[in-house]
């Protein structure tokens, strides 16, 4: 058995977990909640700094004998948050005298899905606050087949929600309100080849709110944005010929998005996999698990190479573990 401790803190969620090959052994989480407005990067980093000691101690207490390595999210993410967590990871690796492994946060979302669902070689739709990407494995890399040209779907939803007076995080509120809608208001649908864009949609939805019921605007926002995501995912499936789709990231909790993806998969005859909720949003277990795969494949991150990278792209990582 290999035991890896993983630290995640790219944005609002601080989480430490220990995994072995089979399962998650322990996990502790501390979530930053802004007093008002959205995530403030420096405040989030301060939150992480003041909680990471307890989070790590608690996790080690629950399952921490003979840790083989410490893994951490090296990026992408908010710079101040990444730096705080990386500092803790370095200190922990040195004090436990075990190797350090810097992992890509996006790939961790995919690998935890391949671990915790039957998906083997899926096209992944990864949707969170800051990220919206369609990814698939090919010849040694996780390739980005399509992605947002501006902001992530979660940020687009949050921005719109804030502008109409809904509290953070806006996504779940928009989803609730959308259920009571009675009609669709046309909003800009922007797909360019394999890429999509959400900032125009967010602005148009704010404008539409001046003339239409909030419930109708929420519904129209979701229907438009999700149709864009599902369309690009379907194109990636058609292009790659893969037979599975995996949903990853916090926005994957949205039931309407799942329903739409499910229908598309049914019509195309491909399998659709959604990990259970605790492995969908940002979590320490996914970082620990990718760390485990990389540890066993021989990856090590020297302290001198452990700088964080806020723009770390998944297609920069050579995949030797598959």
């Amino acid at each position: 058995m290999t035991l890896i401790l993983g630290l995640e803190g790219t944005a609002w969620n601080l989480s430490a977990a220990i995994v072995d090959e089979k399962d998650m052994v322990a996990e502790t989480t501390a979530t930053y909640r802004p007093a008002s407005g959205g995530i403030h990067p420096r405040e989030a980093a301060q939150h992480h700094a003041s909680h990471i000691g307890d989070v790590v101690r608690e996790t080690l207490k629950k399952g921490g004998k003979n840790i083989d390595a410490v893994a951490f999210s090296q990026g992408p993410g908010l710079g101040p948050c990444l730096r705080t967590v990386a500092t803790a990871a370095r200190a922990l690796a040195l004090s436990l005298d075990v190797p350090l492994i810097g992992v890509n946060h996006c790939i961790a979302h995919i690998e935890v899905g391949r671990w915790k669902t039957p998906a083997r070689d899926p096209v992944t739709l990864y949707v969170s606050g800051a990220n919206s990407q369609v990814l698939a494995y090919r010849a040694g890399y996780y390739r980005v087949f399509g992605e947002t040209l501006d902001i992530g779907i979660g940020n687009a939803l949050d921005k719109f929600a804030r502008s109409v007076g809904l509290p953070h995080p806006g996504g779940p509120r928009v989803e609730e309100l959308a259920k009571q809608a009675s009609r669709y208001i046309p909003l800009p649908y922007t797909v360019k080849g394999m890429d999509f864009s959400f900032s125009g949609l967010s602005t148009a939805a704010q404008e539409a709110r001046k003339k239409h019921a909030l419930t109708d605007v929420c519904h129209s926002f979701q229907e438009t944005a999700f149709a864009m995501l599902v369309e690009v995912t379907e194109r990636a499936v058609a292009h790659t010929g893969k037979k599975e789709i995996l949903l990853a990231g916090g926005v994957g909790a949205n039931m309407r998005l799942r329903e739409m993806l499910g229908l598309m998969c049914e019509d195309r005859g491909v399998e659709f996999y959604v990990p259970e909720k605790r492995f969908m949003g940002d979590n320490g277990a996914m970082i620990a698990y990718l760390g485990l795969l990389m540890f066993k494949a021989g990856y090590r991150t020297e302290i001198t190479d452990s700088r964080v990278n806020p723009d770390f792209r998944p297609d920069e990582v050579v995949v030797k573990w598959r």
């Binding site: 669709y184 149709a227 599902v230």
Partner: peptide, 12 residues
């Protein structure tokens, strides 16, 4: 496409 609203589907 069944997954999207009729309005969006026919418009597209």
């Amino acid at each position: 496409k069944r997954y999207r609203l009729k309005e969006i589907d026919e418009m597209l």
